[in-house]
């Protein structure tokens, strides 16, 4: 494996694609590489290639979760989502750009079962153990997206600037398909550079997990109010961060036998988040 440390975004983009992977904080990628779940001929170290820091509504992709969770410029939902993610050790390395690209915690996928998401035919979780899995968008793959900040950014209507275009967080993600099992629309050599996060009138992030600290969301609910409109973003309920307009949308959930309880939790957290705003 080769390692490159490009001096800027332009050189980083040129080095990406063709079997190379971007290395940001490394908290997800390093163990994935070590366990052979993902492979790279070349690692492209982004330390000098993506902006880091917070300037009003603009957040550099290299900004760490630890930096976001304490900055008063950052909307509450994103601060709270970062503060409740992982552990202090991981938040000091993990970047917001990398967090948007983190892989599912589905243990079938992480144990390298030849599952649908890995390009196979079946989702082993659907017939097997799936307590942590999806209640929406789970027809092909029942994995749950693990990012708390991504749900917050979805509710906040954040926009993502890459090296070649601007798109919303809602547009960044899409359910994997038979043709492409990826959960984002980005090209292999496309680099997230910056986020623009609108300031809401109020926002909040609530998270149900198996213990009080250092656990992935069973259900995470971000809510943001702009005037009289409230938007919700959910973590841990679908293969991608999932937007809902209200608790009524839970009527359309397609839970598995082992995830039906998540529908109840999501309803309760949405109600609680709504009243907190």
């Amino acid at each position: 494996m080769e390692l490159r440390r490009p001096p800027d975004a332009q050189h980083a983009v040129a080095a990406l694609g063709n079997g190379s992977l971007a290395l940001a904080g490394g908290t997800d990628l390093v163990p994935l590489l070590r366990d052979g779940i993902v492979r790279a001929d070349t690692l492209v170290h982004l330390a000098d290639a993506v902006p880091r820091g917070i300037d009003g509504t603009r957040i550099g992709a290299g900004t760490t979760l630890a930096e976001l969770e304490v900055d008063p410029q950052v909307p509450a939902a994103l601060r709270e989502a970062c503060a409740q993610a992982a552990s202090p050790q991981l938040r000091s390395m993990g970047t917001i750009g990398g967090n948007l690209r983190q892989a599912t915690r589905c243990w079938y996928w992480r144990l390298r079962f030849p599952c649908w998401l890995h390009g196979g035919e079946v989702c082993h979780a659907k017939a097997g153990q799936h307590r942590e899995h999806a209640i929406f968008g789970n027809e092909r793959c029942a994995s749950a997206h693990p990012s708390d900040p991504a749900a917050a950014l979805l509710a906040l209507g954040a926009r993502v600037r890459t090296d070649r275009r601007e798109l919303s967080v809602a547009e960044l993600y899409r359910l994997p398909t038979d043709e492409s099992r990826d959960v984002v629309v980005l090209a292999p050599d496309e680099l997230v550079l910056e986020l623009d996060v609108p300031l809401p009138d109020a926002s909040v992030y609530l998270k149900a997990m198996d213990r009080k600290k250092w656990a992935f969301p069973l259900v995470g609910v971000a809510a943001a109010r702009f005037g009289d409109r409230v938007a919700f973003g959910l973590a841990g309920v679908a293969p991608i961060p999932w937007a809902v307009d209200s608790a009524d949308d839970l009527d359309r959930a397609t839970p598995l036998p082992g995830t039906a309880y998540k529908v109840q939790i999501a309803r309760a957290l949405i109600a609680r988040a709504f009243s907190a705003l």
Binding site: L3, R5, L23, G26, T27, V30, P31, L43, H45, A47, A66, P88, Q89, L90, S92, M93
Partner: peptide, 19 residues
């Protein structure tokens, strides 16, 4: 494996030496 990297607490198992 916790160490301080530039005064920030990190898991050194998740940081590459080159980082």
């Amino acid at each position: 494996c916790s160490v301080l990297l530039d005064d920030r607490l990190v898991c050194s198992c998740l940081v590459l030496a080159v980082q």
